[in-house]
């Protein structure tokens, strides 16, 4: 029974290599729920909170690198919010202020819940996940990282160390629907981001599939429909068609939080609104 608190990434990788079945503890906001309920009894824990490298970020010309240990409170404001506004909008909806102070981007990925609030934005921003172990580092697209509900491609001994996302020129929007004004699990969430440089629109969907989804047909349609050089306002018909195509990309289920039918409907409505907001 141990709690290891490595202070460097190298130490952490060694610890993970020698305890491949250890529970990795970041913000604790998912792991401790399982522990408190008795569903998980950790024997070895590697606490990642003391590793300064994981709490750093850098904003490059084309890509933003965010350390896995950066909390949602940090993402929700400041320069990260300016560089990735949709991610900041999503970060603001993660749990409560208490949760946002503790919960990390890496943790959200590690849990890999379909309702994870950051995931649809990461999908829209072409995120890649950096995994590090004693054997080195690999960087894989989010679509390869998320393999199913709460299932990821992280291998024993590997740590999620960073996330890289596109830095775009253009407006971004994120909408999350739940049945309370705050502190609510997502019923549907939709991210729509535009890039004027590449004249592209990208869509990420949360809680309407086993993994975060994109809407390629809707994205292609919007890229085509938008007059990138001149007046960027979108008309009602474009929004309607875009909504339809996004809705078709959703693969929702019925559960105690909502119905598949409503989720599909709301996906389209939110997509249209997001598009309307970014091209008013």
């Amino acid at each position: 029974m141990t709690v290891l608190s490595p202070r460097t990434l190298a130490e952490a990788c060694s610890a993970a290599a020698s305890n491949p079945n250890a529970d990795l503890l970041a913000g604790g906001t998912d792991l401790m729920v399982e522990v408190n309920s008795g569903h998980r009894r950790p024997t070895d824990v590697i606490s990642l909170g003391a590793i300064a490298e994981l709490r750093e970020w850098s904003i490059g010309e084309d890509r933003i690198t965010i350390g896995a240990g950066v909390t949602f409170a940090k993402i929700a404001s400041g320069e990260l919010a300016t560089a990735a506004p949709a991610l900041a909008m999503a970060a603001r909806t993660v749990g409560s202020p208490q949760i946002r102070n503790a919960a990390t981007l890496g943790g959200n990925l590690g849990t890999g819940s379909p309702a994870g609030d950051s995931l649809p934005v990461l999908a829209a921003l072409n995120a890649s996940v950096v995994l590090t172990s004693v054997h080195g580092q690999r960087e894989i697209p989010l679509s390869e990282f998320c393999v199913g509900p709460k299932r990821t491609d992280r291998q024993p001994g590997e740590l999620i160390t960073a996330v890289r996302i596109d830095r775009l020129n253009g407006p971004q929007e994120f909408c999350k629907l739940g049945t309370r004004q705050a502190m609510v699990i997502s019923v549907v969430s939709v991210a729509v981001v535009a890039d004027t440089s590449s004249t592209s629109v990208r869509v990420g969907l949360g809680a309407v599939g086993p993994v975060p989804l994109r809407a390629p047909e809707a994205e292609a349609f919007a890229a085509e429909a938008i007059n990138w050089s001149g007046q960027t306002s979108v008309d009602t018909e474009t929004c309607r068609r875009f909504a339809e195509l996004v809705r078709d990309a959703a693969r929702p289920i019925d559960d105690h939080r909502s119905t598949a039918e409503y989720r599909r409907h709301a996906t389209g409505v939110l997509a249209a609104r997001a598009l309307r907001r970014i091209f008013p």
């Binding site: 913000g27 604790g28 792991l31 401790m32 409560s96 208490q98 102070n101 503790a102 502190m183």
Partner: peptide
Amino acid sequence: GECGSCSVMVDDELVCSCLVL
């Protein structure tokens, strides 16, 4: 972490103590 009744400060951050190992 859904009610805040256990709120404490850890290193000057407000957190739910139920979610701190």
